[in-house]
């Protein structure tokens, strides 16, 4: 079943994420992707995440397709203008890529080419409009296409953004611009997430809760301090600490599995997006403990 059909059928849908490496040696990522085959409904392929230059998303999406896996092409507006973005969207479409996640993209300041000229010719909301246009056979300028695309397009939202009001207004703009599904920034507080969902449920879109695997108490503290829009509650940090250094990762897997169970059992959202960040090999264990395999 395709990612789109899975979500639309009401199945609790699972996506995970892989980040192509910097350089042409792809043994590791192929192995990780292979481990997830038949387990997740789709795999996001990041687009130069954190503005660090790597293999582009489209090429690795094509390799996934060849392996019989369903990719979600992540597309940011940082590195390409409206001509480049549309051209790549047409190109990805003829390769058979069906899903695209539209994002603005981290600023080059975060990455390893800080002197780069940031593009941002258009941004996430407008990129969603572009995809909608291409799906309907016309480009951004209204020119007719010789053959339309058929994308299932999604976007991101930060449920714990502070302040939340402008974030929710942007969420609504993304829905209007044609987003069909959302993968959220990492959430750790399910009660807070329920509040977000009670708002989000008013719109005809599918929501996958973003979950980042906690590998240690130190990592949780780091995210609280430095990653905007992510808050790891103190109870979880205490749990990781109590587990001790060697068992912290295992505890992190437990915590995520527990969250997935709750999200699914209480029918809080439509699925989860698992971000293991360097521990992709742990995704099957997470899914097993969550009762998804």
């Amino acid at each position: 079943m395709s990612f789109k059909s899975a979500l639309e059928s009401g199945k609790f849908t699972v996506t995970a994420e892989v980040g192509p490496p910097k350089g042409t040696d792809i043994k590791k990522i192929l192995h990780e992707a292979g481990m997830l085959k038949g387990k997740v409904d789709a795999l996001n392929v990041t687009d130069n995440q954190s503005a660090v230059m790597r293999i582009n998303s489209m090429s690795f999406c094509k390799l996934l397709l060849d392996m019989g896996q369903e990719p979600i092409l992540q597309m940011t507006c940082r590195d390409r203008n409206r001509i480049g973005l549309q051209s790549d969207l047409l190109g990805a479409s003829i390769l058979g890529i069906k899903n695209v996640l539209c994002m603005t993209g981290d600023h080059p300041n975060a990455g390893d080419h800080k002197e780069a000229k940031p593009v941002y010719d258009i941004e996430s909301v407008q990129l969603l409009q572009v995809v909608d246009g291409l799906n309907n056979g016309r480009d951004l300028m209204g020119n007719d296409l010789q053959g339309a695309t058929d994308y299932y397009q999604g976007a991101v939202v930060t449920p714990e953004a502070n302040p939340i009001e402008p974030q929710m207004m942007k969420f609504e703009k993304k829905v209007k611009a044609g987003a069909k599904f959302f993968q959220t920034q990492a959430i750790y507080d399910i009660d807070k997430f329920k509040v977000f969902m009670s708002d989000a449920r008013k719109f005809p879109v599918k929501i996958l809760a973003g979950l980042v695997l906690l590998k240690s108490a130190g990592m949780a503290n780091f995210m609280n301090k430095f990653v905007p829009g992510i808050t790891v509650p103190q109870e979880l940090i205490d749990e990781l600490k109590a587990a001790g250094k060697e068992k912290a990762l295992d505890k992190g897997i437990d915590i995520m599995a527990r969250h997935i169970r709750q999200l699914k059992d209480e029918n809080i959202c439509d699925g989860v997006h698992i971000m293991a960040i360097g521990a992709e090999d742990k995704v099957p264990a997470i899914m097993e403990r969550a009762g998804l395999l």
Partner: peptide, 21 residues
């Protein structure tokens, strides 16, 4: 806005501060 965004804050906004600095 360092990204020149036209439709609202990006995910990098944090307590009224920008992800860039």
């Amino acid at each position: 806005c360092p990204k020149g965004l036209l439709n609202g804050p990006c995910g990098g906004t944090d307590n009224g501060k920008c992800e860039v600095s």
